[in-house]
């Protein structure tokens, strides 16, 4: 057991746990942040995407022991920001949501993209979402949602 201190959605957290547990499990089970989903547990589907120290990561691939001092943002944190609200609205207006299981992860990937590139092309948006699998939408409306968020959110990123 190791004591680990890190920040989640701007709040400092200290937990004592097995450092080899997945960040995904700590977020869901210990902190109740169930917006982070488990879809494949091997870094393929992106449903568990969170932002760690400003970078998009698959939380199923991250042992909590590597998170000492890290800043983690989950969908629960992002949705409380103007950026998050802009993405959520843009997705809703674009028809980007169907079963919704991939969508919080898609929102995190969108945030990570716009943080680096506030006016992406369609090709750049598709590349940015390529680690987030969706089985319902065929992606077009999600891509539209990303571009709409970029358009509406000028100045936010």
């Amino acid at each position: 057991m190791t004591k680990i201190t890190f920040s989640v959605n701007g709040e400092s957290r200290t937990i004592e746990t097995d450092p080899l547990r997945r960040l995904l499990d700590v977020l869901r089970e210990d902190l109740g942040l169930t917006g982070v989903k488990e879809g494949c547990a091997e870094g393929e589907c992106g449903a568990c995407s969170v932002i760690k120290d400003g970078l998009l990561v698959n939380s199923c691939m991250v042992p909590i022991g590597t998170c000492e001092g890290a800043r983690i943002v989950t969908p629960e944190g992002l949705r409380e920001t103007d950026r998050g609200r802009t993405i959520i609205d843009a997705y809703a207006d674009s028809g980007a949501v169907q079963c919704g299981f991939c969508t919080p992860g898609m929102m995190m990937a969108t945030e990570a993209l716009l943080e680096k590139n506030s006016q992406p092309s369609e090709a750049e948006a598709r590349e940015a979402l390529s680690g987030n699998l969706c089985r319902c939408t065929g992606y077009d409306m999600i891509v539209e949602g990303v571009l709409k968020a970029a358009e509406r959110g000028k100045g936010l990123w």
Binding site: R28, T34, P104
Partner: peptide
Amino acid sequence: TPIRRVDAKDKTSGAARYLAD
């Protein structure tokens, strides 16, 4: 004429509770 899906916001924001949640 399309309307906003009623479940879009809860699902995107992670608020929707699936079985494992």
